[in-house]
């Protein structure tokens, strides 16, 4: 019983991180119909920004804020000066472009920050809370992880549902030409979409790095899980991304706890295949198939 509880709590925390990463992918997919493979190295770079500040003696929270802010700027710059120039009618060009960005950002990080492993602090305890004699698998940092991702989700929902900017972003995502005709500055909305996505990605980077080690490819493993989570949710639905992240986190934690940790990656792919076989559009897809 206690092992199940521990496993579920670990899965919940992990799932939240996947959810954040998946959310970042979904935001960009919705805005520009591009799967951003460079999401991981972008988050890695902004985590380094935080690390440099923290190692220079500034507080964790200053580093945290700086990482999110640099995510905002980086996302906007990448959209405005790189993505903007790719032919949107082509299926393969944006994929190659973001993969290229992946490699470039990796190399850049290794060049600027070095390729060695560096430890990243956590703002809260990394030991489980004590209840009587037993230690439960929920750490202070785990609670912070869950709350911060939830806060991001709530803020995004508020932004998209209840603000004029959010409405324009949704309209631009749905039909750029019509939105433009109605006077929406579509270009700005796309830049903003990428910027917000990069902020959410940066958050996932900070959460994964917390209490662990940072090196240029520390986020790469998350790409797979985050992508699986996003596809599980339907790639088009922010709610789906969060649900996909949680489902994946919990299942992988169960697999790791009861079957064997070496099977985790395999399990992720098995879940992905199972869902895609039953619901090709993902769990939360509004359309079952896309006409090509």
């Amino acid at each position: 019983m206690q092992q199940l509880f521990t496993t579920l709590l670990t899965g919940l925390t992990l799932g939240m991180v996947y959810a954040a990463f998946a959310l970042a992918l979904v935001l960009i997919w919705r805005a520009t119909r591009i799967v951003n493979f460079a999401q991981a190295p972008m988050a890695m770079l902004t985590t380094y920004v935080a690390l440099v500040l923290i190692e220079a003696g500034y507080s964790y929270w200053l580093g945290f804020a700086a990482a999110l802010l640099s995510g905002l700027v980086l996302g906007a710059l990448v959209e405005r000066f790189v993505i903007r120039y790719v032919d949107p009618r082509s299926e393969i060009n944006p994929v190659i472009l973001t993969l290229g960005l992946f490699i470039v950002l990796h190399a850049l990080a290794a060049l600027v920050f070095g390729a060695r492993y560096r430890s990243f602090p956590a703002p809260f305890g990394l030991r489980g809370f004590q209840v009587g004699d037993t230690t439960i698998a929920l750490t202070g940092f785990g609670i912070f992880t869950i709350l911060s991702v939830l806060a991001v989700v709530v803020l995004l929902v508020l932004l998209f549902r209840y603000t004029d900017v959010g409405l324009k972003m949704r309209a631009s995502a749905f039909n750029q030409e019509v939105a433009r005709l109605l006077g929406v500055r579509v270009g700005r909305m796309l830049t903003l979409g990428w910027a917000l996505a990069a902020v959410v990605g940066s958050l996932s980077g900070l959460l994964i790095a917390g209490g662990g080690l940072v090196h240029p490819s520390f986020m790469d493993g998350v790409v797979v899980y985050g992508f699986v989570a996003a596809v599980l949710g339907g790639l088009d639905s922010p709610v789906g991304a969060v649900a996909g992240g949680l489902i994946l986190g919990l299942s992988l934690s169960l697999v790791s706890g009861y079957v064997g940790s070496q099977l985790v990656s395999l399990a992720a792919l098995a879940i992905l295949m199972a869902v895609l076989l039953v619901r090709p559009g993902g769990l939360f897809a509004r359309v079952r198939e896309r006409r090509v």
């Binding site: 409405l167 309209a171 039909n175 939105a179 109605l182 006077g183 929406v184």
Partner: peptide, 23 residues
């Protein structure tokens, strides 16, 4: 028509009203 199918009717119209927003 070019309606935004995932937005409500009211939201569709609100996108068109954006020119009057001073926010």
């Amino acid at each position: 028509l070019g309606l935004f199918e995932h937005l409500t009717v009211l939201e569709n119209v609100m996108v068109g009203a954006g020119r009057h927003a001073r926010t």
